[in-house]
């Protein structure tokens, strides 16, 4: 029944999906945190940039961003991100695009988390003599992160599914292989089911695990 899988590296494709997800998740967590820090910073220019970035990026379709990394960054500007082969270049460009896009959502999730931290926490920290960066890094962000594990899990699940857009620039991840198999084999429904199941295997445990973390990490007040 599953003969149609013969000759296709389904696991390999999903491994690429996992790698896209992981690198993009790490990158967007870092950049998203930096953006959130900018959005609450006392420096108007930084706040302005953070707000501008989130509002622009959130409203552009991911496909447009991913295709721009390939056509705009690579083919026009020659940005190859230190890679030699097309496969690696496209992979890195896709990660860059996914980070640029996902970080806007990480930023917004974090910002809502920052809003749950009572002002008194900040005042107590400032009264001790901590500077802005210390207050943010030691008091506000740790509490904000704990309160947004749930929303961040949703962002991660969305990111996992969004990696399929990387197919648009030829990254050999799951969706690209699925399209190829559907063209070559006469098993449309079965092939779709296999790939759908593959994504469930990735996202369901993630959601359950992070749900558990979210309950563990919650700050009691």
């Amino acid at each position: 029944m599953f003969d149609f899988l013969q000759g296709y590296d389904v696991l390999g494709a999903f491994w690429t999906t996992v790698q896209l997800t992981l690198w993009s998740a790490i990158g967007s967590l870092l950049w998203g945190t930096a953006l959130a820090a900018m959005r609450v910073s006392p420096v108007p220019v930084m706040r302005g940039f953070g707000t501008w970035y989130v509002n622009v990026v959130r409203n552009i379709p991911l496909t447009v961003i991913i295709i721009f990394t390939s056509l705009g960054l690579f083919q026009t500007l020659g940005v190859s991100l230190g890679a030699g082969t097309f496969t690696v270049i496209n992979f890195r460009l896709a990660v860059l695009g996914l980070i640029a896009y996902t970080s806007a959502f990480v930023c917004e999730a974090l910002r809502s988390g920052i809003n749950t931290v009572p002002l008194g926490q900040v005042e107590a920290a400032r009264a001790l003599g901590l500077g802005f960066t210390q207050v943010l890094g030691l008091i506000v962000l740790p509490q904000a992160f704990r309160s947004v594990v749930g929303p961040l899990a949703n962002v991660l699940i969305a990111l996992t599914k969004n990696t399929t857009v990387a197919a648009a620039i030829g990254v050999p991840e799951a969706a690209l292989l699925m399209r190829e198999m559907i063209e070559n084999e006469a098993q449309l429904i079965l092939i779709s089911a296999v790939f759908a199941a593959g994504f469930l295997v990735l996202t369901l445990p993630t959601g359950l695990f992070l749900g558990w973390v979210s309950r563990k990490a919650a700050v009691r007040r």
């Binding site: 008194g120 926490q121 901590l130 500077g131």
Partner: peptide, 25 residues
């Protein structure tokens, strides 16, 4: 004014709030 020097001065001034404001985490 707000900045490193003010932070240093605040360290010399202890403050206790009505709502305690202990760091919850």
């Amino acid at each position: 004014a707000e900045g490193r020097e003010l932070a240093r001065l605040r360290a010399d001034v202890g403050m206790v709030f009505q709502s305690f404001n202990l760091f919850a985490h």
